[in-house]
Amino acid sequence: MRRSEFLRAVNLEFGPRASTVTNDLVLDALGGRTAADALEAGLSPRDIWLALCAEMDVPADRRYGVGRLEPRRR
Score class of each variant (00 low, 15 high):
Ala18Leu: 03
Asp57Pro: 02
Asp61Glu: 15
Leu69Asn: 14
Ala60His: 06
Asp57Glu: 15
Asp24Thr: 13
Arg8Ser: 06
Glu5Val: 03
Glu40Asp: 15
Arg73Trp: 02
Arg63Tyr: 03
Arg3Gly: 04
Arg33Val: 05
Glu55Ser: 07
Arg72Ile: 05
Arg62Lys: 11
Phe14Val: 02
Asn11Ile: 00
Ala35Leu: 07
Leu52Met: 15
Ser19Pro: 01
Ser44Leu: 08
Ala60Ser: 13
Ser4Asn: 09
Asp24Asn: 14
Ile48Pro: 00
Arg74Asn: 09
Arg46Gly: 08
Gly65Glu: 10
Arg17Lys: 14
Tyr64Cys: 04
Leu50Pro: 01
Glu70Arg: 05
Arg72Leu: 10
Asp28Asn: 09
Ala54Gln: 13
Asn23Asp: 11
Asp24Ala: 14
Met56Leu: 14
Trp49Val: 02
Leu52Ser: 01
Ala41Gly: 14
Ser19Cys: 06
Ser4Leu: 13
Leu25Pro: 01
Asp24Met: 11
Ala54Phe: 02
Met56Ser: 09
Leu25Gln: 12
Asp24Val: 12
Pro45Ile: 01
Leu39Asp: 11
Gly31Glu: 04
Arg46Asp: 05
Ala51Met: 07
Val26Cys: 05
Arg62His: 13
Leu30Lys: 02
Ala18Met: 04
Thr22Arg: 05
Arg68Gln: 09
Glu55Cys: 04
Thr22Tyr: 01
Asp57Gln: 15
Leu30Thr: 08
Leu43Ile: 07
Val21Tyr: 04
Val10Ile: 09
Gly65Trp: 08
Pro45His: 04
Gly31Met: 13
Val21Cys: 05
Arg17Pro: 00
Arg2Lys: 13
Leu50Trp: 03
Phe6Lys: 02
Arg3Ile: 08
Glu40Trp: 03
